[in-house]
Simulated scan of single mutants.
Amino acid sequence: MKRIIIVGGGVIGLSIAFELMKKGCNVTLLEKGKLAGKASGAAAGMLGVHTETRGNPSMTSLAKESRDLFPALAEQLLNCSGIDIGLRQNGMIMPAMTGREQHLLQEEANSPQGMKEELRWLEERELRKMEPSLSRSFIGGLYIPRDGNLLAPRLSEALAISAATMGAVLHEGTEVNTLIMKGRSIIGVNTTRGPLYGDEVVVAGGAWSQHILRRVGIKLDAAPVKGECISVTPKEGFLNRTIVSDDVYLVPKADGTLTIGATEQVGSFSEDVAAESVSRLLAKACTIAPGIAAAAWGKAWAGTRPKTSSRLPFMGRVPDVEGLSLATGHYRNGILLAPITGVLMADLLSDKDCERRLGYEYTRQWDRNRGSTTSEVSR
């Protein structure tokens, strides 16, 4: 039975652990703090294939495949853990306030990709009917019917319980100090609990992955990006679908709350939320849906996401280092890409040939000799 060590207990590491357990592997997952205690727990839980991957065909293909795994995954997790992840496939709307915005969104709806995803332009009257709480300043909007959202903390909790129920060992409060090398091979990790040995080590530590890898001479071209969000509780039925503009999104949740996000601050690991950020998010949200001003206050929080220069995640084996793989750099799409990342990495780590499936450029960005423009790892 193959022994696999996963470093990082966010939604990506937990998804990999869950999928590996299905394949009968021996899995130990190590998390420095609490499971999903960082970006995974702070995520808004949007499943926005179109809004998050515009202009990146490779990313769009991967995101669509991952999004379409969610209904079956939600059922599996409910059966295994008893947790409902709050999956809502109720669509998204990108509203337009100017003629130029209308023109650009109509072009997207009429593009081959838009028609394939069934994107549809909503005239003002239809937009009002679908979402009467939106500002009267909007002249229409782009409707994205297949996207949706979920409750991100519940997804991570369900994955953790399900993986543990199947036999995975999950250690919270366990920091990985260094990777144990033998020649050019990784054979384990040194932790605050002592050394642990395995056949494969997967680094899935999000924005903290670079700290671990730097100690063995591997540098990632990635940066931490802090994001702040707030939540409120509006009247029932205030919004039925996720609303996305260029600088703010509104995500109505299955528990009745509305998540509003998010700011971006490159290079910061701080979890503090600035009063100015709260004020700015609320002001922007109220221009989209004025009734938010009367909603009950919820809370504010922050998380740090890993962003690569290409905005493509690292997924695959590290070249020239046996026994070491990465699954990190998912940036704003960690929740959306969690299911497919778990499946693909489990295939790879269980010795199943998945070169074809990982042909989305995510493995190719390692290898400068293949002419990729996204070579992001150096020693």
Rank of each mutant, 00 (worst) to 15 (best):
Y143S: 09
G24L: 02
T53K: 05
A207F: 00
T178C: 01
F138P: 15
G13A: 14
A274R: 14
G10Q: 03
R368L: 13
T341I: 08
V216D: 04
T308C: 06
R154M: 02
L119E: 10
W301D: 07
E376L: 13
V273G: 11
S111C: 12
G24A: 04
I218M: 03
S325M: 09
I4C: 03
L119S: 11
E228R: 09
T191E: 06
L281D: 08
W301A: 08
Y249D: 07
E31L: 00
C80W: 09
H50I: 13
L119R: 10
V176M: 09
L69Y: 05
G316P: 02
R317I: 07
Q113R: 15
Q210Y: 00
L30E: 11
G261I: 04
A289Q: 04
T304P: 05
E264W: 08
A43F: 12
A74C: 04
T98H: 03
Q102E: 15
L344K: 02
Y197K: 12
R379Y: 13
K226E: 01
P132Q: 06
L344C: 01
A109T: 11
A43I: 07
R356T: 14
E361A: 11
G359Q: 07
G261Q: 05
N333F: 07
D68S: 10
L20V: 13
G371R: 05
C354P: 10
S66E: 15
T259V: 15
Q89H: 00
P71I: 04
E31P: 01
A295R: 05
I6Q: 00
K307N: 09
D247Y: 08
R305M: 04
Y331A: 11
G188P: 04
Q102T: 13
S231C: 14
E117S: 09
L20A: 12
I161Y: 07
L142F: 02
S40H: 11
S268H: 10
P132L: 06
S40L: 07
A207Y: 00
T257F: 05
K129V: 07
S58M: 15
G37K: 04
T373A: 10
Q210W: 00
A164H: 00
F269V: 04
Y249G: 00
R67K: 10
P290S: 04
P153H: 07
F18K: 14
F138A: 11
T374I: 05
A283I: 08
I186M: 02
G188Q: 05
L62T: 10
G173S: 14
L337K: 13
L179C: 10
S185M: 12
S309P: 01
R332N: 02
E276S: 15
G48Y: 07
M94H: 01
T98D: 08
L312P: 05
P145E: 09
D347G: 14
S372G: 04
L127H: 07
Q113A: 12
L196H: 09
E108K: 15
L127R: 06
V189F: 06
R305L: 09
L134G: 14
G298N: 06
T178R: 01
E19H: 15
G291I: 05
L134R: 12
I139H: 08
G99R: 11
G329D: 02
G267V: 12
R305D: 11
S137F: 11
P234K: 06
Q102W: 04
S350I: 12
E123T: 09
K116H: 11
D84K: 06
Q265F: 02
R120T: 15
A160C: 08
A294P: 01
V266L: 07
M166C: 06
A300N: 14
Y143E: 12
L155H: 14
A17H: 14
